[in-house]
Design a protein around this nucleic acid. Structure first.
Length: 423
RNA sequence: GUGGGUGUAGCUCAGCCGGUUAGAGCGCCAGGUUGUGGCCCUGGAGGUCGUGGGUUCGAGUCCCAUCACUCACCCCA
């Protein structure tokens, strides 16, 4: 079925063909409109970064860093990594360009490809695309709520009907260690009955014990103390304010006391948007506060919040509820016949296109009949016919496809007609 | 990394217990109208039956391996 000397797109990557690209453009346009209304400016950072950035930023113990990165040595022996997520690079750029010294908060958004080495499945690829937002330099709970509201607005604008917002707070370096100890103590005697990966989590990353999906583990951890109940005063107060802002915004959400995100940098507020229209990979997007990240990456102690969403996943849900946008209407097909006719047709097509009209012309030396068929398929408003006869007399025949009405005109009059109606 | 499902024309698929030139619909191209679309009719192009090995007189069909796609675990967007 596929030859090409055996060369195909690499596993987990996909080509986006024009019909599909129109959906992407729609998503991208809506994203820019919403984010810019909220005062965010686009930032474009490199596709690859020094490996160390992700190791330090995301955390060595995370699956993403531990086993999913595309890491390679370049010819200068530098260890580089295709970015697996957007936040680390944005924060790096923020620091590198001394934005921490400028007006705060810095409000940035991005869209683009990310890379993770995983087994592909529904809603998961090795090269995938994320859109995301970072608000750097403020600890205002209004910023946390703003993230959630922006994403909800975007989804609604895109016609994504049913999504749920899951919300939790995972505390800060002041309250989390104590909680983790309580969690460990609580589970210490039943450690053996947890699944093997949870036994490992017990050591490396105990918070992750909370969101294991296995039946046995759920049962074992069912009565465990909850993070939200163990927050310090500051975190609890912050969280209450976030919830109040969400209420004011009319955003309904579900408390998800077991929601823990897989990247180490999160603190306090974490959230996830999920959709029942997706498969097992049901998260449309997620994010939260990361008050320690900027400092971890060598900057000042400075808070931040952000979120990222999977563009393919949003598109997947959109496709279930909406038709793809149609291709731009063709204003005219210029059908030609004979060498002289072709000569005039090619010139006119170019002139009209430069004037902003969408004009098609046959390149395959097809019969007039075939050119008409093609025009019909393209949904052309008019067909302009130029044969030897018309070319010689300096006129064209214009046929309106909807009515079949046809008359002889001067080319300039046809152009005017099209531009007036095409407005 | 582990498990399930699927690989036959550009697309969607059929191909019975292994048997002779591998089919359909759609799409594409051409013609029916030597300069006129949609509908209709006729014809045509297009297939290493994912790949490699094996069983057999004979394999698209059975067996093994491998690759790809897909779904799930895991993880996450």
């Amino acid at each position: 079925m596929i030859r090409l000397a055996g060369i195909t797109a690499p596993r987990g990557t996909a080509d986006i063909l024009p019909a599909e690209a129109r959906r992407w453009q729609e998503l991208e346009a809506a994203t820019r409109a919403v984010f810019e209304a909220y005062g965010y400016g686009e930032i474009r950072t490199p596709i690859f970064e020094h490996t160390e950035l992700f190791q330090r930023g995301i955390g060595e113990a995370t699956d993403v860093v531990d086993k999913e990165m595309y890491t390679f040595l370049d010819r200068g022996e530098r260890s580089l990594t295709l970015r697996p997520e957007g936040t680390a690079g944005v924060v790096r750029a923020f620091l590198e360009h001394r934005m921490d010294k400028g007006a705060l908060p810095a409000k940035l958004y991005y869209m683009g490809p990310m890379f993770r080495y995983e087994r592909p499945q529904a809603g998961r690829a090795r090269q995938f695309h994320q859109l995301g937002v970072e608000c750097l330099g403020t600890q205002d709970p209004a910023a946390d709520a703003e993230m959630i509201r922006m994403f909800a607005t975007l989804l609604r604008r895109l016609g994504v009907p049913d999504f749920r917002v899951l919300l939790n707070s995972i505390g800060c370096p002041r309250c989390r260690p104590a909680y983790v100890e309580r969690l460990r103590a609580h589970l210490a005697d039943r450690r053996e009955s947890l699944c093997t990966s949870c036994q490992e989590r017990f050591e490396r990353n105990p918070l992750r014990l909370l969101d294991c999906k296995r039946e046995e583990c759920r049962r074992q951890t069912g009565d465990v103390p909850l993070l939200v109940d163990g927050l310090c005063e500051e975190c609890a107060g912050h969280f209450a304010e976030v919830r109040a802002y969400l209420k004011d915004a009319g955003i309904t959400y579900d408390m998800a006391p077991r929601l823990v995100r897989g990247l180490d940098y999160y603190t306090k507020t974490v959230f996830e948007f999920v959709s029942a229209d997706l498969g097992a990979q049901d998260a449309l997007g997620g994010g939260g506060r990361y008050d320690g990240l900027i400092e971890t990456l060598g900057g000042p102690s400075m808070p931040g919040v952000g979120f990222a969403a999977g563009m393919e996943r949003i598109l997947l849900v959109m496709a279930k509820h909406r038709e793809a946008p149609a291709a731009a209407a063709v204003d005219a097909v210029i059908a030609h016949h004979g060498a002289a006719g072709r000569r005039v047709a090619v010139r006119l097509a170019g002139d009209w296109r430069d004037a902003g009209l969408r004009v098609e012309i046959d390149y395959m030396d097809r019969s007039l009949r075939a050119q008409m068929k093609q025009a019909d398929r393209l949904g052309a408003r008019v067909v302009v016919i130029i044969g030897e006869d018309e070319a010689a007399r300096g006129v064209v025949r214009m046929r309106e496809m909807a009515t079949g009405e046809e008359r002889e005109m001067r080319a300039t009059d046809v152009q005017q007609f099209l531009m007036r109606k095409g407005g």
